[in-house]
Amino acid sequence: MTKARKLELVCPAGTPAALRSAVEAGAHAIYCGFNDETNARNFPGLNFSRDEMAEGIAFAHRHDAKVLVAINTFPRAGAFGLWSKAVDDAHRFGADAVILADLGLLDYAAGRPGLRLHLSVQAAAANADAISVYAKSFGVRRVVLPRVLTVQEIAAINRDIDVETEVFVFGGLCVMAEGRCALSSYATGKSPNMNGACSPASHVEYRAEGAALVSRLGGFAIHRVGAKDPAPYPTLCKGSFRVGDYQGHVFEDPVSLDAAALIPQLAEAGVTALKIEGRQRSRAYTTAVVKEFRAAVDAHAAGRPIAASALRELTEGQRTTAGAYRKAWR
């Protein structure tokens, strides 16, 4: 096997400790967000204060890693200043890029000299024409592709665009095209795309009822499992419901993405960067997943075979899938 182009590994960090863990484990780039609703992982106790972000960027740069700041929710009417300040602060701290989704915010950030713009998966740009509009209008340099495309579709997109593409290779999956899901807001009154949390923890409840464990969102029971089953996931899309004679996962099975085995095909399809999901997870998760994928990326670059993944225990449903990259139903 011949040597191949090295892919960039983009890793999550929900806390400064997770950022340091990701850098130590071999991340080429780390994505993270401020501790407010400007990013799509606005969870209690998570994310970075302004001082922590400045220190985190400096730490990463000292160790030759990049920091990409996610400001990827959609500004609320009348509150644009919160989002524009996040862009300005990320720029001031020396972020290597900001990850944006909103058109108005992209326009604002495009006016900041030297600030590299990445298009968030929240923008759901899933074809070459849409991506080209973002590139020409705002100078977007990289696009994070939605998790709805096959490897062949990604290759087709890369043939027709002049910007980099980044794809998810590990972590939770969304059944919806990202940025277009309002499912949990019907149960919680909170928008995943504006308030920054799908199924916010304040609306999630787990309760043991006899031998069963029941998960509720906004007071609605969405899944019930037996004593030996994996704990249920707290989102409506992965709930279990009765529809007519059918009972089960109506929208999506609770499985996680693991595309480690597809790294050679994704590279062949012209992808620049591989992204790991999980800013809401611990530094133990970050360390384990980043180490595994860094080894896989290095193996691919050196022309060696990629070892089988050993990360199933870390996934949400304790089961993994190659997701839309391999659409077996087609």
Binding site: G14, T15, F43, P44, G45, L46, P200, A201, S202, V204, E205, Y206, R207, A208, L213, A227, K228, D229, P230, A231, Y233, P234, Q280, R281, S282, A284, Y285, A288, E313, L314, T315, E316, G317, Q318
Partner: peptide, 26 residues
């Protein structure tokens, strides 16, 4: 250990205020 992994594997159980648990974990 990763808290989510322990929770999904049922090695860890949580009850009550989920937001408080998430904040403490983080």
């Amino acid at each position: 250990y990763d808290g989510d992994a322990l929770f999904f594997s049922r090695d860890l159980a949580i009850e009550g205020d989920t937001a408080a648990v998430v904040a403490l974990r983080n």
